[in-house]
Design a protein around this nucleic acid. Structure first.
Length: 803
DNA sequence: AGCACGCCGACT
DNA sequence: GTCGGCGTGCTC
């Protein structure tokens, strides 16, 4: 008897283990590890992953697998093992580890229905129920709830007239398209054409078409080509002259675009030096992590492209990760342009179906290169030759939900398996990576100069306090205003960057300073202009903007925070002749609008591009000669030990947008803290000095890269319970870790309450703590097992956000 | 997560 | 005496 070990799709501690099922005779030899199956679980049917096969089980009363959901495994052996690794290292449920590796379309959808029993007629049911089963023998549970007939249904179910069934469905179907082909040889077809009645001219035309083009064709195409209708084609199908059939086709998100093919560019001496060790590692199948540290515009992408070229020529595959926000058409073009159809692109802009199709191309090995955001690191290749992570320092590579993995760690883990190199590229490497490069853990490759030796843009830092002192209350310094005007006259383009993170618009009373907070969470509500609403980002609470301040009844209550809209309005006032394109969540919401706005700007349809984070990256137009940062320090004061690093990185990235071609670029950075080293050094584009300064601070404050971090957060409705339980946790940890380890807490979270649950946390800083995962696991086991305490514990190993 | 089983209060 | 509240524990 064959038995399958299954991980079921129920994300709880109690079910986070293997369940054994009998493989029914009919599926013997078909069901393999890595396949999804439908299994009975208690009273319902759910999805599960087969992770292994065995001959016997200790469990007596085994049930049978109902059916496989796949014809071939969706997770190969390597990915199944990677799932174990993910579970161990991020302390997540197994089911989450497997699900994160697959496109969302493969996540099951569950439906509960009520079905008329086989031997029961509709008329046997109570009159009240009969209408619901007149046309169909199934009824959605949802519909039953809405109509309030659940008790009645249950009564009938008990009698055996009705049964409750549980369906497991795919989220997205493979896209099928209708095709037509001749069902006989060319010669036979030519004969048949004469037998077509004289009045059936269209049918004859269709046959003539097939005689000239003797091959299958998409039905829709045929109809438009011959200018006929589907019914005419149907007639021929009925006469058995043609055959209609369905074929799986891929949705092609790039169908409307052509990609200009590019050839490898000649490398500069610096690039040559940098690429040599990578090519060498590819050649020798050697696992090595490279940190490609190259200033903006130094030609990192060409190094990626030529390394991939080498990998493809070796018959291997490549994964390229790019941050979601810079996964722009420009970026995609560079890969598609070089490798054409060998590239699959996975990003959030695609529909679930499109993403699934791109994933299928990878699974079927029809492509050699996968380009995508974080989760593309799980691309199901089986012969990986290189993994590249561009903009390595980006925080979006860390997932903040379960499984809380970092794409860089996954890349390195997979690379060990394939004996292949990993390339981390950045103009402003994360301190962690640069420190590892200094310690020779990573192999450092530098590109210190821009291509063609263009000079880096000149940067000027403007002290906005000074502006205010001299009576300028606008958000534009006089210098920036002058320069914007100058660029418009010269017909050159400018980019204005607004750093909104951590500074979202909130409502405040100008008289008493009252700020609108969420009643469930200790955080201010965010103003949404679209529906004139206030919304809590954590629990979804919504409220209207009050006309009068609830505290002092003043009517001077209004929203604060400089949004892009406000900047746009102000620009309209001071520079009415300027043509402005605004890019933010509001204007880029619709599919393709992001691309359209950028094309418009590229084509010179605007003088100024105004936007948030999303314009900080990948923008590379020749006519941009001015970049203005409206307020450099908005995120400098966040309660985050990486605040300086993030500020430095952002300012450096933004500055890099100017003067990348013939025209020299200038950058204006407006700030209220011009003396802060991250602002000053970003102005000088001096990464090395910044690194040294920041490392000193990290060392004294015992933060990464000198220490590793783990964060435990406990939440409960009762404040006392959280504090006392957290104290127990802290005590437990303190007694189990080594003396060099620092355990901070219990302390209230930076957001002390979310959704009426109080949150306390404990931060563990350690250099070497081989048993920490085990210790953390016991804590999770203890708390997740008993659900009745109402305590929630979450653990983030190597957190990026300490909230 | 669902769902069933099971033990206590307010109704016919 | 029964219906139904949700506390507890199980799902191969």
């Amino acid at each position: 008897m064959e038995i399958a070990s299954v991980i079921v799709d129920v994300p709880t501690k109690q079910t986070d283990r293997v369940f054994d099922y009998i493989i029914p005779e009919q599926w013997g030899g078909v069901i393999q590890p890595g396949m999804r199956v439908i299994v009975p679980f208690g009273p319902r049917n759910i999805q599960g992953f087969v992770i292994g096969l065995k001959a016997e089980s200790e469990i007596k009363k085994l049930r049978e697998i109902l059916e496989p959901m796949d014809l071939e495994p969706v997770l190969n052996k390597e990915l199944l093992e990677l799932g174990d690794w993910l579970t161990d290292h991020t302390l997540c449920f197994k089911i989450f580890a497997y699900q994160v590796m697959l496109p969302a379309a493969l996540k099951a959808k569950y439906e509960k229905k009520v079905k008329l029993a086989a031997d029961t007629a509709v008329t046997e049911l109570p009159l009240q129920l009969q209408p619901f089963f007149e046309h169909e023998d199934m009824l959605d549970w949802e519909a039953a709830l809405k109509n309030g007939i659940v008790p009645l249904l249950q009564k009938e179910a008990a009698k055996g007239q009705l049964e409750v069934i549980y369906l497991v469905k795919e989220r997205v179907k493979k896209k099928q398209q209708k095709y037509v082909k001749p069902s006989m040889t060319l010669a036979e077809l030519s004969k048949e054409i004469d037998r077509i009645p004289a009045n059936a001219e269209k049918q004859r035309q269709i046959l003539r078409f097939f005689i000239e083009n003797y091959h299958e064709i998409e039905l829709r195409k045929l109809v438009s080509e011959v200018k006929t209708s589907t019914s005419t084609v149907k007639a021929l199908v009925e006469k058995k002259l043609l055959t209609e059939f369905e074929m799986e086709v891929y949705r092609n998100p790039f169908a409307h675009r052509t990609f200009e093919r590019t050839k490898p560019l000649p490398l500069t001496d610096a690039q040559q030096t940098a690429i040599a060790p990578i090519l060498d590692a590819i050649e020798r199948n050697q696992h090595e992590v490279f940190l490609l540290y190259g200033v903006t515009g130094s030609g990192k992408t060409e190094i990626y492209l030529q390394s991939i070229q080498e990998v493809i020529e070796k018959g291997q595959e490549a994964i390229v990760l790019v941050p979601e926000i810079s996964l722009t058409p420009q970026m995609v073009n560079r890969f598609k342009g070089r490798f054409g159809d060998l590239v699959a692109v996975l990003h959030s802009g695609l529909s679930a179906g499109e993403k699934y199709d791109e994933w299928r191309k990878i699974q079927r090995k029809e492509v050699k290169v996968a380009v995508g955001a974080r989760s593309a690191i799980f691309a199901p290749f089986e012969n990986i030759g290189i993994m590249i992570i561009d903009e390595e320092h980006e925080t979006s590579y860390k997932q903040e939900e379960m499984p809380r993995y970092h794409a860089r760690d996954v890349a390195i883990e997979r690379a060990l398996n394939y004996n292949c190199p990993v390339v981390l590229g950045s103009a402003t490497p994360s301190l962690e990576s640069f420190a590892r490069a200094q310690k020779k853990v990573y192999h450092l490759l530098s590109l210190p100069n821009r291509m063609n030796n263009q000079s880096l843009p000149s940067v000027e830092i403007i002290d906005m306090r000074e502006e205010l002192r001299e009576g300028n209350r606008s958000m534009f310094s006089r210098k920036l205003f002058e320069m914007l005007k100058d660029r418009i006259e010269k017909k050159q383009q400018s980019v204005l960057f607004l750093n909104k993170r951590g500074h979202s618009s909130f409502v405040m009373c100008r008289d008493c300073g009252y700020v609108m907070n969420c009643p469930n969470c200790d955080i201010s509500l965010t103003y949404h202009r679209v529906n004139e609403h206030m919304k809590c980002h954590y629990c979804g609470y919504e409220s209207y903007v009050p006309k009068h301040c609830p505290e002092c009844n003043s009517e001077y209550i209004r929203y604060f925070g400089t949004g892009t809209q406000k900047v746009e309005e102000e620009l309209g006032k001071i520079l009415p002749e300027a043509r402005v394109i605004r890019m933010d969540v509001d204007t880029t919401g619709k599919k393709g609008s992001h691309e359209r706005l950028l094309t418009d700007f590229k084509d010179g349809k605007a003088d100024i591009l105004l936007g948030t984070q999303m314009i900080a990256k990948g923008l590379d137009f020749p006519n941009i000669t001015l970049v203005g940062v409206l307020s450099a320090d908005t995120m400098l004061h966040l309660p985050d030990f990486r605040a300086s690093e993030k500020t430095f990185q952002l300012l450096t990235q933004v500055s890099g947008r100017a003067g990348r071609h013939q025209l020299p670029g200038e950058v204006i950075i407006q700030t209220y803290t011009p003396e802060h080293y991250s602002v000053v050094l970003a102005g000088k584009q001096d990464y090395d000095l910044f690194y040294q300064q920041e490392m000193l601070i990290r060392k004294t404050r015992q933060y990464p890269p000198f220490y590793y971090l783990s964060l435990i957060t406990v939440s409960h409705e009762q404040l006392i319970t959280v504090v006392s339980e957290m104290e127990k946790v802290v005590k437990h940890i303190r007694s189990h870790v080594s003396s060099g380890t620092v355990v901070l807490g219990p302390a209230a979270s930076p957001i002390p309450r979310i959704n009426n649950r109080y949150r306390y946390q404990c931060l563990i800083k350690y250099k070497r703590e081989p048993n920490l995962i085990k210790i953390l696991k016991t804590i999770l086991d203890q708390y997740q097992k008993d659900t009745k305490s109402g305590l929630q514990v979450s653990i983030d190993v190597n957190p990026f956000i300490l909230m």
